[in-house]
Design a protein around this nucleic acid. Structure first.
Lengths: 260, 260
DNA sequence: TAATTAATTGCAAATTTTTGCAATGTTTAA
DNA sequence: TTAAACATTGCAAAAATTTGCAATTAATTA
């Protein structure tokens, strides 16, 4: 028989658990795995998985044996919750081929580029220039990555900077590779975006980079948005989650774009 | 038999131990292996390995018999965040008096300025210009605050930007009020800081602001650090957690500085 | 409603990390 | 030079983590 109170109890326990863990960390600056396991009446495995979940959200930092307070940066800026889609993981893996130690990378703001940065090996040596707060927050933990942040007006919904100063700052750099997460690309229309300000930033990034890699899920191909960024052949490579030999992509290959 | 010290040892996470070592080094400029071994209830071997690990990360310099400060780096933001919290709250409340809607605020990076920003009413209308990531992340939730982020080289331990571009960007603004968290202030020596790069940023901020408010815990008064920022009378107001009528502060009042 | 899919949780084996100890080598200072 | 202090290395026990698996439960869909 369905037991409503048992149901409620179990549901609350889940919510409580995560909340209690966060509270404990806030109070003591740390939590210990075995203590929590006892306190919350679940196995250490479950607590470990809870901690990992909270750690992914940026609410604390998982360490061996428990957890400690995380970085003071707002969890929103970490934005890693929504990036773990299968498609983005595939794109991220493919993009890693292009990223060799020593390069100067210019990275725009978006969940796809964030996924690529998350996938970088912890010890890689790079220079990364970006206007994305989530990218910076990931690279905080990379000791050999020199990060340069592009200032400007805070663009709250995208966790990035935009505007005149951002574009001027971009023009002062010369990057080896531009990692460009895009909204949409069409062979004839070119690359287009949702917002005017971001399209300007993207264009500046493309113009100042030697090699441009566009990152896009397959469903954004052949689509267009209101604001023009650049012609399709302004990019050097296009990475999607699909097999590059797909016939749909032949037009891009003919235009001299490497498909991965 | 119940062993209290074993119990303590079991409760101490390795990550905590590493933090404590860094704290000790920051406090005393040095640590001695055997002392730490006693204090932390682990063998000297373990302390030695900890020190090596921290040394690899550049957080201190391993020497025979212990460790000393590496490059004169400021302790990490995370370590400073939870010290003197009560005093910082008092300072934050006093600082609110100065922050009127509509102002253009220039805010430097530090745990004290972060505390002030946290204390702002959620609906205030402001323009905030800052090079501090924690400040931006707090202001993300303030719908009526227009935020401008100053780009530059990422300064990982302080969660801020520094360097040539940062200073150039600061010079393009003209702020009403500068909120300046400071390392130390002395009437004769002036304001001084712990790192060269940050002292340059602070100086640029002061120069471009109409009204400068220095924020300092009382114990930083009459103290000096290696890098000169500006003369004491370059600031307009000084806020500490203590009563402004304290005789120790009379010198500042005579120099025309408002004490709060 | 029933069947399927997805999520949660605990268990256990394999693996990795941590830690103290002891043997050996190196540096320091009287 | 020699004795003491310190560092390095390898090793083994203990602890923590990873991984795959199975049982249970929740959510979705036909």
């Amino acid at each position: 028989m369905f037991n409503f109170f048992l149901y409620l109890y179990l549901l609350m326990l889940k919510a409580e658990r995560l909340q209690k863990i966060v509270e404990q960390v806030a109070k003591d600056n740390k939590v210990i795995l075995d203590d929590l396991s006892q306190l919350l009446n679940v196995s250490t495995d479950t607590v470990r998985r809870d901690i990992k979940e909270l750690s992914d959200k940026g609410l604390l930092k998982a360490v061996r044996g428990g957890a400690i307070v995380g970085s003071p940066v707002h969890p929103h800026f970490k934005e890693r919750q929504h990036i773990d889609t299968q498609q983005k993981k595939v794109i991220a893996q493919k993009a890693l081929e292009f990223i060799k130690p020593g390069l100067v990378l210019l990275v725009n703001a978006g969940t796809t580029t964030t996924a690529v940065i998350s996938a970088l090996p912890k010890d890689i040596s790079l220079t990364v220039i970006t206007n994305s707060f989530p990218v910076v927050s990931i690279l905080e933990d990379y000791p050999n990555v020199n990060v340069f942040f592009i200032g400007g007006q805070l663009n709250k919904p995208a966790f990035s900077t935009i505007g005149y100063e951002t574009i001027e700052a971009i023009r002062n750099f010369r990057a080896d590779v531009c990692l460009l997460g895009i909204c949409s690309i069409d062979l004839k229309v070119g690359i287009t975006g949702f917002t005017y300000e971001e399209s300007l930033v993207d264009r500046a990034m493309i113009e100042t980079s030697k090699y441009v890699i566009a990152l896009s899920t397959y469903d954004k191909i052949g689509v267009s948005d209101p604001y023009y960024v650049c012609a399709a052949n302004a990019i050097d490579a296009l990475i999607t989650e699909k097999d590059p030999s797909l016939a749909d992509l032949d037009g891009f290959k003919d235009a001299g774009i490497m498909i991965k």
